[in-house]
């Protein structure tokens, strides 16, 4: 769960959960196992880049950062937009 990407990194397989992202987050995208973002739409940068990189990504999931607790195990389905707690 990341609020500001500066100085942050994520380990292999970790899922990036954020309120909003912008192209500056690309550094984190490249090592994320999946991406969940509260704001945005299918045309958001995060969604486009994730599609390009083949990373499962769900955008526009309101309150994701409140619902998800840092360190939890999640299943992210980029096709259906479903995020489930394991």
């Amino acid at each position: 769960m990341i609020a500001d990407p500066r100085g942050q990194s994520i380990a292999a397989g970790e899922i990036l959960v954020a309120r909003h992202t912008d192209p500056g987050w690309i550094a984190l995208f490249s090592s994320a196992g999946a991406i969940v973002v509260e704001r945005g739409s299918l045309l958001s940068h995060s969604a486009i880049v994730a599609r390009e990189l083949g990373i499962p990504c769900v955008v526009g999931l309101s309150d994701a950062t409140r619902w998800i607790v840092d360190g939890e195990v999640l299943t992210v389905d980029g096709a259906s937009g479903k995020v489930a707690k394991a």
Partner: peptide, 30 residues
Amino acid sequence: TEELKLESVTLDEDPTPLFAAIAAAARSRH
């Protein structure tokens, strides 16, 4: 990060976020 804000620090001023990203990519089993 926050590239549309003029006050954001660019990578030529501070490349350390790029270093961290490369290190993370090196360790990731993608």
